[in-house]
């Protein structure tokens, strides 16, 4: 049994008791508020009637909450149907342009136009970067034939002049074939290996 009720209160205890009494009335306690006793009081109130939210109070709070109505939610903006069509048309145009650009660039790379970029100042045909070995093995890359050198073109132009010019054209053609076969061998080693080179040498 706890009983220390007999002793007289000290000044400090009197101040604490007064501060606690104020706090229990709902007024803020000052620096002398005994927190230990205040916490015990709060616990006892919790165990008592105050610890439960009464139905009436709960409904009053709810009523206050919804008094102004539910907050406006931003409506999901519905676009007119023609704006959808417009968007689709723009997207189709962009896609078509991208595809066209890819086709043109691919054509350039595979040398679909034999004279494209074949000016006399062009680098040697073998300078065209071959695809990687894996790409070549897969056979998915097109075969970019080397552009004919300017010397071959001039030999072709003069071939009709005489025997010497025809021999020069033959020599230029042999060199060009050698270049083509070398590139093919690099790109398709399985198909154009030593046999292709042997054929080129014939």
């Amino acid at each position: 049994m706890i009983d220390d009720d007999a002793t007289d209160p000290s000044e400090e205890e009197l101040a604490e008791a007064a501060a606690l009494a104020e706090a229990l009335e709902g007024r803020g306690g000052d620096g002398t508020l005994p927190e230990d006793a205040a916490e015990a009081a709060a616990l006892l109130r919790y165990a008592g009637p105050e610890g439960e939210l009464s139905g009436a109070r709960a409904e009053a709070i709810l009523e206050d909450l919804v008094a102004g109505g539910l907050p406006e939610r931003a409506p999901v903006a519905r676009r007119p149907w023609w704006r959808g069509l417009w968007g689709a048309a723009v997207m189709s145009g962009l896609t078509a342009a991208a595809v066209a650009l890819l086709v043109v660039r691919s054509a350039d790379r595979v040398g679909m136009s034999p004279h494209a970029g074949a000016s006399p100042a062009s680098p040697a045909p073998s300078a065209v970067a071959p695809p990687s070995r894996a790409e070549a093995e897969l056979g998915r890359m097109p075969v970019p034939l080397p552009a004919p050198p300017a010397s071959l073109l001039s030999a072709q132009a003069e071939a009709s002049k005489g025997k010497a010019e025809r021999r020069r054209l033959d020599a230029e053609m042999a060199r060009y074939r050698e270049t083509v076969l070398r590139d093919l061998e690099a790109r398709y080693p399985a198909r154009f290996g030593a046999r292709a080179r042997a054929g080129g040498a014939r």
């Binding site: 706890i2 220390d4 009720d5 209160p9 205890e13 009197l14 604490e16 008791a17 007064a18 606690l20 009494a21 005994p34 230990d36 006793a37 205040a38 916490e39 015990a40 009081a41 006892l44």
Partner: peptide, 14 residues
């Protein structure tokens, strides 16, 4: 007020 303060402290201790 003093009795209540002491009562609360006694309660807490117990």
């Amino acid at each position: 007020d003093v009795v209540l303060l002491r009562a609360l402290r006694a309660f807490r201790k117990e």
